[in-house]
């Protein structure tokens, strides 16, 4: 690796240094924009005791769900986990620790983590189980709770295109949590559909600057669709 070139040549190299009991932040919403090959590599490595931070936990046989059968995840911080039978079984039996976090709060926790802000106040969750044990304070007559930022030992991200310097462009709603996740990892690993030479991306159109990116790899993607919903042609 030379200068600002972030490209690595194998998924093994991309996830090198990930060890048991680390915290991993993952981009994606449902199965959209998930770093599917980086997740598969974590599965192949067999790393255990992980704390995962992700909006969802995949489905039984795809996305983060593949880390469940051999118990690689110790704890997950997520907003919605309803699509996964094995997940539900492990959660109900207490094998898997789940910290349900409102979606906007989760996004802001990642953003704050990456931006060096240790905590923030939000009205989201006031008077609900989410507020339990958290500091409360009034501003302008309204109650807010203090939410702490999240950072990860690793962040795993899926983008559409990158240049070799790790400048990223996302595509449509596959952007979702990926830009925040990218800022919040000590080591941020990004997989993309296409890597181009520096200078080929319009600087005005870059969503995530390369400063946040440590490793970059080009992959091929299944992009599984969770709810295939259509209207008839000709309408």
């Amino acid at each position: 690796m030379a200068g600002f070139n972030k490209v690595v040549n194998s998924y093994e190299e991309a996830m090198a240094g990930l060890t048991d009991n680390m915290t991993v932040i993952a981009g994606g919403f449902g199965l959209c924009g998930i770093p599917e090959n980086l997740i598969a590599e974590i599965n192949r490595k067999g790393t255990k005791g992980l704390t995962l931070v992700s909006n969802n936990c995949g489905v039984d046989d795809f996305g983060l769900g593949v880390l469940l059968p051999n118990r690689q995840i110790k704890k997950i911080i997520a907003s919605y986990v309803g699509e996964n039978a094995e997940f539900e079984r492990q959660m109900m039996s207490g094998e898997l620790e789940v910290e349900l976090t409102p979606q906007g709060t989760l996004a802001e926790k990642m953003r704050a983590g990456g931006a060096g802000i240790p905590a923030f106040f939000t009205a989201t969750g006031v008077g609900t189980p989410v507020a339990e044990g958290k500091d409360e304070r009034q501003f302008n007559g309204r109650d807010y709770i203090l939410e702490e930022a999240i950072t990860g030992d690793f962040a795993i991200v899926k983008a559409w295109k990158a240049d070799k310097y790790g400048n990223l462009v996302f595509r449509k709603t596959a952007r979702n949590f990926n830009p925040m996740a990218a800022t919040a990892g000590k080591i941020t690993v990004v997989e993309v559909e296409e890597i181009v030479e520096p200078g080929e991306l319009d600087p005005d159109q870059i969503h995530t600057p390369g400063i946040y990116v440590n490793r970059l790899i080009q992959g091929t993607f299944e992009k599984r669709i969770e709810q295939r919903t259509t209207r008839p042609s000709g309408e």
């Binding site: 919403f29 449902g30 199965l31 709603t173 919903t229 259509t230």
Partner: peptide
Amino acid sequence: QFPTEEEIDADLINAGKQT
């Protein structure tokens, strides 16, 4: 609206994970 079969894009979904 929902896409036609030809318009489906895995990168474009709503909060209910529908295309």
